[in-house]
């Protein structure tokens, strides 16, 4: 698991209070992990804070799964 993936999963577990094993790369925040639209806003803010990046609103809307977040953050960092 990449460093980014590990940190993303940790944030998701903390914010959504879900079991770690459920937080797979294909897991959808809303459909699989019980988040609502406000939770996803908060998750994006937590990713910005953790990785020191800015995720514009239009990009944030495309981040639906754990894998989407890892891909976006890895791209933003490189």
């Amino acid at each position: 698991m990449s460093d980014v993936e590990e940190r993303v999963k940790k944030i998701v577990v903390e914010h959504l209070s879900v079991d770690e094993e459920k937080v797979t790369k294909t897991a959808s925040f809303i459909d699989d992990l019980g988040a609502d639209s406000l939770d996803t806003v908060e998750l994006v803010m937590a990713f910005e804070e953790e990785f020191g990046i800015e995720i514009p609103d239009d990009a944030a809307e495309t981040i639906q799964t754990v894998g989407d977040a890892v891909t976006f953050i890895s791209g933003a960092q490189s």
Binding site: L38, V41, E42, M45, E48, E49
Partner: peptide, 10 residues
């Protein structure tokens, strides 16, 4: 402002 929680108001 980008750090204000979506749960602040509700």
């Amino acid at each position: 402002p980008r750090r204000v929680s979506p749960f602040f108001i509700p």
